[in-house]
Design a protein around this nucleic acid. Structure first.
Lengths: 342, 342
DNA sequence: TTTGAAAAAGCAATCGGTTGCATAAAAAGA
DNA sequence: TCTTTTTATGCAACCGATTGCTTTTTCAAA
């Protein structure tokens, strides 16, 4: 366990002051370029590495970004994190990642930890049952920037990064209608969350635009798990008037439902056309391949991280942008394609 | 932006020394319990929070664990991370996570970043083309503990956490043979990595134990992607003697291959029985449901983190345990079940 | 040669806890 | 009551980099 090299060691060796060494290593303009190169080369030679804690302590910043997500183990979220990590790494920031497991209580605790770790900024996707952002007040008060992504909530001075879920829901529904569906059913998650509320809104708008009636019977709120998909299928089987179109707000749930429906004797897409959401890898391996809305996870992570870092480096003021909309993409595969194009 | 409360503020208010306050907050035995409760309550009242940097600077440790994984966006890895996060959070450790994207070069860079961030310990799963652990020498030299998990490599003083991939591969193959398969094909990844090499070894052992011949034609090395699964299917279709059993070292690849095989007219499991690996969520939604080896991701993450933290807290010496084996589980589903049990 | 401004480098305080050692106070024993 | 232990607290030196301000050096203009 060898001793660490400090700027004092370098200073002593070169008969300079620690102040000069520090400035040289930070490329301060008041240091002559000859001294600078002398110092940097000596530092490298001695295997010097800066002590971040001393630096952080003095400068009151940490080069660390806190990330709070509902779950780490979802296909979508892991691509988001991958994107964030890529950018953060490139810009010399560290990521501290924690999961709320969809509980406000844990989210509050995580926020506290992040605060105590003195993160420079925060990237958050909200838990299912989060009602307000009070637990982030400590951050707002101290002027620590925070960006909400995907699961967002309007908030002053807090940029949101999302796709247009209303429009995506509208497009998905419209696509099913265009395939000749008469009765489209929508299955979604907790409508407390914007993503699900918005998709539902889009669904309703599409029906409305086509002059179709809206019925509560064709709207189901579930937890979008595999089990929910199975339950849904058995429910549909027992309906007097089963839907002939199914828009499910999650690919994974859609895939499991589709499997069960087929076992019950439904043909897809002819009896029931199905479209999911997220472009989860699973959508390409289920039979038939699942139509979906491509959700740009990696990109969302990259943009969230980059925006935050730009703000921290003073390149951009977050207050000027309140919302960033990413493009999504309707991907049509066999599960919904009735009208064959030649 | 209000001023932070420090132990000095508390000390002044209570007319005590900062040292006493510090000790009280750390539950030092030399402080009377009455003073302790006085100080802690005052601290809470004033909204004091410890400055980790000052503390880290002085104590030369960071309460931070570095994690390097090949990819963040894999179902398996995200469950591992979820497990690590859970334990780390509970034990008051932070996680710095980075991905090597399967490249040694990035792994080396990540290791350097971790070192500069002065992590207390390291949890690593190796990139596909990592040949040695030289880039971790800095850690070994400084006595910073490191645990390898899943993608490991034997190394002195470095605990490995794995499942018995040889045995798992053996069991998977044996299961297919028990279902009456005569020609079992094995498809795996880069055999530089223990996980794939070991599964292959298990496959070979099973054939050997049954007195079956080993043929290179029935062993394919791929990158285990969706595309690889499709290619594999079209390859099998063109084989003079297609296999009647298929052991693929990844569920996702297996699922995509299975879909293509069915399109080519193969019946599963009757023409070809298929088993995957990992118990990826996808295995439960593909048609037919995919048999697999359950890989305890969450548990692996939890154990890796807990073991490291125990070591850091002096509760356990890593050098005493060189390898931790977790249990896996053979999960039989429709894709391989020919012999029906009544 | 002197003067002055600009450029380069140094001084010393600071960030906020931690900890070995010294000291004071209280309790126990003589 | 006086000494010895034990217990509780304080002193002050760190940890290592940063930065406002001062001082020294350099170099050109007067």
């Amino acid at each position: 366990m060898q001793k660490e090299v400090t700027i004092y060691d370098i200073a002593k060796l070169l008969e300079l002051s620690p102040a000069t060494v520090s400035r040289a290593l930070n490329d301060h303009p008041a240091i002559s370029s000859s001294t600078k190169s002398l110092i940097t080369s000596k530092a490298k030679e001695m295997g010097y590495r800066s002590n971040l804690f001393a630096s952080n302590l003095r400068r009151q910043r940490t080069n660390t970004i806190g990330v709070i997500v509902p779950r780490l183990d979802s296909a979508f979220m892991s691509t988001v994190l991958a994107g964030m990590e890529k950018i953060a790494n490139k810009s010399n920031y560290n990521l501290i990642i924690s999961q709320s497991l969809e509980s406000v209580k844990k989210e509050v605790a995580n926020a506290k930890t992040m605060f105590d770790s003195r993160v420079d900024g925060l990237l958050v996707s909200l838990a299912a049952d989060t009602d307000d952002l009070e637990h982030f007040n400590t951050f707002f008060r101290k002027g620590i920037p925070m960006i909400l992504f995907d699961r967002v909530m309007p908030q002053k001075n807090c940029t949101n990064i999302v796709i247009d879920n209303v429009k995506a829901g509208y497009d998905a529904t419209m696509h099913l209608l265009d395939q000749g569906c008469q009765q489209v059913m929508h299955v979604t998650g907790n409508v407390k969350r914007n993503v699900y509320a918005d998709r539902l809104k889009g669904y309703k708008m599409a029906l409305f635009d086509r002059g179709l009636p809206l019925s509560d019977e064709y709207i189901r709120l579930t937890d979008l798990t595999r089990q929910a998909g199975l339950d849904l299928a058995s429910h549909i089987r027992q309906m007097a008037m089963p839907p002939d179109g199914l828009f499910i707000a999650s690919d994974f749930c859609a895939a499991s439902c589709m499997g069960a429906l087929r076992q019950y004797g439904f043909t897809i897409p002819d009896d029931i056309a199905v479209i999911g959401f997220n472009n989860d890898p699973v959508s390409q391996v289920v039979e038939p391949n699942l139509s979906t809305i491509h959700y740009p996870g990696q990109e969302m992570g990259e943009i969230a991280a980059q925006t935050l870092i730009n703000h921290l480096n003073g390149l951009l003021h977050l207050s000027t942008t309140n919302s960033i909309l990413l493009n999504y993409e309707l991907i049509i595969r066999q599960s919904s394609q009735r009208v064959k194009t030649p």
